[in-house]
Design a protein around this nucleic acid. Structure first.
Lengths: 144, 144
DNA sequence: TTATTTTATTTACTTAGGTAAGTATATGCC
DNA sequence: GGCATATACTTACCTAAGTAAATAAAATAA
């Protein structure tokens, strides 16, 4: 019987989270904390809204993770011009540690995809990106 | 900057869980409950161990979900020959409802992958299955 | 300027996953 | 048979993600 795509993605997602958490153990971080640190490393300081929009999660999820990252000294927050906003920034401790962590993560990821050729990896990412896009959206892209 | 595969899978996994949960609302089910029901529908009665092994999750995860499914009348459990085991079986209520639910799920999934051609969908599943397999395992497959 | 609505974040509560440790039954060895 | 070990499941506690509702600040309308 044909397995649903949903189950396949779900399983591999759990598997890779497990792998990433294992890799992060030595830095006392969890995968979702890493995701936010990685985001800040790419884009610099961001409001929480910018973070959850980019990561495609809900606001409360980011609040929780940010609070833990703040408590453990990876980030700090300051008020924006708009006093409702809170701008999140990497601590110098984080800036200093991040390159080694990214290395470690890429290493874990390489083990995960070691069964795929470079070409297959690119193909996979390309196909994943198409998920959740209606064919009409795709048309828009072509026309735009 | 190159996004990590891990993030891509993780995002699409959350997206499809959301979609599936939405589709399941009318049946008062959640995605993980559905996963177990689908499993039992495919294979018939199973021990909890068989379920968590097939689903690639840990035993406590299955315990929790099974308990909720039992409370809401979708499944029941009986003792096995081995009194440590608990054999899980679909209720007749579940047997009766499942076809409509599976239909609804396939419909949700179709919307998710409507941006991909049939061929791309097969490709995607094929590539996903290769994740987490070391190249040495692949060699074993070729030789076996 | 005051009242209403919108927006950014937080809090409370739910499901879902994990690890570690506890319990009860089976199995193996003496 | 009796004791040690292994196995199946459960319990307790952690992170992660979601929804709904609360709070506080900003923007808008009257």
């Amino acid at each position: 019987m044909k397995k649903l795509l949903f189950h396949e993605i779900h399983q591999k997602s759990r598997l890779s989270i497990k792998e990433v958490n294992e890799a992060l153990k030595e830095f006392e971080l969890y995968s979702s904390q890493w995701s936010i640190l990685f985001c800040l490393k790419q884009f610099g300081s961001m409001t929480q809204k910018e973070i959850w929009q980019y990561m495609n999660v809900e606001a409360p999820t980011v609040t929780r993770t940010i609070v833990r990252l703040e408590e453990s000294g990876w980030i700090f927050r300051r008020e924006g011009q708009d006093k409702r906003e809170r701008i999140v920034q990497l601590s110098s401790f984080a800036e200093q540690k991040l390159p080694a962590i990214e290395n470690r993560i890429r290493q874990a990821e390489e083990r995960l995809v070691s069964g795929l050729s470079e070409e297959e990896q690119d193909q996979l990412i390309g196909l994943l990106r198409k998920i959740g896009m209606k064919s009409s959206d795709e048309k828009d892209v072509k026309n735009g």
